[in-house]
Design a protein around this nucleic acid. Sequence first.
RNA 1: GGGCCUGUAGCUCAGUUGGUUAGAGCAGGGGACUCAUAAUCCCUUUGUCCGGGGUUCAAGUCCCUGCAGGCCUACCA
Length: 677
Amino acid sequence: MMTHRRILVTAALPYANGHIHIGHLTEYVQTDVWVRFQKLRGNQCIFICADDTHGTPIMMRARQEGRSEEALIAEMSEHHRRDFAEFHIDFDNYGSTNSEENRHLCGEIWKSLREADLVVEREIEQLFDPEAGVFLADRFVMGTCPNESCQAPDQYGDNCDVCGSTYQPMDLKDPVSTLSGAKPEVRPTKQLFVRIEQFHEFLEEWISTDNHVQPEIANYLKGQFLKDPLRDWDISRPTPYFGFEIPDSPGNYWYVWFDAPIGYIASTKQWCDGNDQQLDDWWKSESTEIHHFIGKDITYFHTLFWPAMLKSAGFQLPTAVHIHGFLTVNNRKMAKRDGTFVLARTYLNHLDPSALRYYLVSKLGSRLDNIDLNLEELVNKINADLIGKVVNLASRTAKFVQSVGLSAEYPEDGGLFHRAAALGDEIAEAYENLEYNKAMRLILSIADQANPYVEDAQPWVLRKDESKAQQLQDVCTVALNLFRQLVIYLSPVLPELREKTERLLNVTLDSWEASKTPQVGTPVAKFQHLMKRIEEKDVQAMIEESREANAAPKSQDSDEPLKAEPLAEQCTIDDFIKVDLRVARVVAAELIPEARKLLRLTLSLGGDETRTVFAGIKAAYQPESLVGRLVVCVANLAPRKMKFGVSEGMVVASGTGGEEVFLLSPDDGAKPGERVH
RNA sequence: GGGCCUGUAGCUCAGUUGGUUAGAGCAGGGGACUCAUAAUCCCUUUGUCCGGGGUUCAAGUCCCUGCAGGCCUACCA
């Protein structure tokens, strides 16, 4: 018998700025399955989550919608809760970072940081948007890359997409606020920093021991952050900011990444208050395990800052931070354009949540690989595995024993039940270690033995001979007991199947141990469908709706590009004329193997006039597809020395970069060398 | 440029501390059955285990190297 464990589990807090989509669901399903598994094993386990509600994006959106932040986050919370509930994601408490409990705990932890003398005040300069009246985070500023050899326009405030260099938003040339289009001013602000370097040795030790993080993550952190002194962590934001004002620093607010993880504790506190529990038993007790499930994008907050904060405030550190990869659909990044950016709600409009749960779980392992949702495979897998093999077992036998129930004693079955029970240990180990794909393989192997058993025993023949009634009952008793084992093993993934099976077999399947003892002598209810097949057309309809819901209305294009990059200030015709745009023909296009983004183009402006241009379009265009086509180039741009040679101009394109690059082409009839007026 | 990961049948993947003829599911082909949500069962085809070296009695499995793909991160390692 295993020891009774007390386990606290969290999933990342979804941001209150958007709806839940199937990418999010990978994490919540992974976590929910683990929690349900622990509960089934008899451990005391609670699943804690909350909405992450603070920060500039929430503030700006509320303003835009003309309502309070509180109204916005309250509505979002409703949506999130409903989506999760319908995907059978069952939190013990779902809170909000904008709660009194959280404010209080932030204060407590803050006090510990102060007392340990870990907080320093420093004056820094930040960009301020005079029109919107807010300080601008890096991503709210765009301008020209300050790198002399790059000068790419329209880059964010922290780094350049084109040359990859990093810099401060102050360094950008011609910066523009993406909120208002105004030119930001540089203003000094006093901000608070946490001297996290104090924890350097401790963190190095912590990430290297006891599987606190996956080995590849430990490796990454050591190589990426811990090899140098850790930089002070900028933990405050000046007013206006939607969040908690720092008690001993009026006008300053805690940065959202300070109060968000504390939200885990605050949400636990709410649960404790409602369940007669002591918070300290969960967050300050060595006998409690704490497991965080997060995506790889937020690794650094959870493996460096968070342990440091907990450590200094005397809280228990996580037992493990489990990090997973991202979800792709049909092997591509989810994209609105492809209809693969599917909201949880849109999925629910067309398909059974159990299907996605099973599919994701059958793909998930313990590593942080990305996982792919192949829609064709989804249909196939659900129908073949769950309907054809698992549910079919009950479907083909239950009605034969509807009137008599299960046999009074468990019949001879050639060791089938015993073997499946023994396999339970291995399945449990796979669940425990987050090797869900392995667990599903093992479980399905039971169904693969059960169906031939039924085939061989031929209950449909037995029932025609009244003298074989006992034999018939026995065969169905075996099949339904194997089915019952399957359902227990699958119940962390498919809670709905469990409930329906409980009704069919008149039992409660709330313990893993139950899989070891056969069920006998109980009545069997009238068989009803336990799960529906998936139809290809429903998947198609879901994709269509995702496309429509996200695409702009037909007569009107989306305002997103303009919002992302507001109009520049007015210029005169003289300004415009300075830029000599010419039609050019691509006469050669070469891959530069060492370059990540660049292609080397040779452009002809007619006659002998040519230009060599390095263009950041490698991800978007095949070189051979470019040769011969017409493009528009900036012909009088000052040459720039680049890593692979001198670039003598630019080709004109729109798009956000990467694969999203669209070259301009003149209509038919244009000739190389013609000026664009 | 650096770091990490991956590369096994058409597809998705298993292959335990190196040990006999390399496996499963799906797909494909053939057959059986009719209880079941056109479900199920049986039989069946396919592999330069990415390439090249090396260690070993023995390598998909260990070492080196090359190639390809993915992710992360940078003229700092």
